[in-house]
Nucleic acid binder design. Sequence first.
DNA 1: ATTGCGTTTAGACAAAGTCTAGCACAGAAA
DNA 2: TTTCTGTGCTAGACTTTGTCTAAACGCAAT
Lengths: 142, 142
Amino acid sequence: MRQVHPNAALEREAVIKMLREHHITPTQQRVDIAMALFERPQHVCADQVLVQVNAVESLVSKATVYNTLGLFAKKGLIREVLVDPARLFYDSNMTPHHHMYHTDSGILEDVAPGQVQLGALPDAPEGMVVEGVDVVIRVRRV
Amino acid sequence: MRQVHPNAALEREAVIKMLREHHITPTQQRVDIAMALFERPQHVCADQVLVQVNAVESLVSKATVYNTLGLFAKKGLIREVLVDPARLFYDSNMTPHHHMYHTDSGILEDVAPGQVQLGALPDAPEGMVVEGVDVVIRVRRV
DNA sequence: ATTGCGTTTAGACAAAGTCTAGCACAGAAA
DNA sequence: TTTCTGTGCTAGACTTTGTCTAAACGCAAT
């Protein structure tokens, strides 16, 4: 049986509200996943979320973690980050910013938007809209 | 037995020279792959290269295609492009430019560097160098 | 010819992510 | 509260991309 720690109740409510605001039905599993994601701003891949959510007790299946992360990204709650060819990262920080990726260690850092001057983007082709612009600065040890 | 079309001889020599300039031992397989890549500037994934190279006759194995594309990228002959979470693309156009990615169709286009104003990048952390900066404009149908 | 080293190969393997078919749950309605 | 319906969840099989391994190959130098 599912047990929810009583002290977590308030944050849980806040998360449910957030999901509702993004037109996502707040199921138990989605709330669990969202709480893991928004505990702190972070970059995670599906596998890490799976482990984190099920750390204490098995709450959410693999398929649901994948489905939910995809749903959250589609609904604009989190952001996909493509930096590692082997896995997809998600960023729970939705404020505009860019990324610095350490290719040898896999570390992914945020870069404040003011640190990159981005101007004059090309127009999207006829009948298309810009969904987003990703800037990734790849760095490595000398 | 390996057959090389006589008219391709000249281009083959040029490719061999290019490999040597990048300190890559020009084996038959590497030359075949490079010729497929540089036939025209293009974005390809490993699987497409495998098919293209072996279209007429089976010349190169899967492992070699993967190894060779990785080698070429490491040696600066081609460039990895991360746009699709499911596969890694390679760009045989090494002149500086950015990318526009059609998320629904998978089409990947070049964007001339002049069309994006990129200024004032943050410094790389101590003991690190910037390997590259990727700018991807993701677009989709309205 | 023989040795040695880098390259290629087939096929097994690994990891990320998707799919399926049936069960469970959320929310609406009575 | 109970029932109902459509959405969501699950285990586990499956797919796809890419890597690894061990043996064979190729070529240059001895």
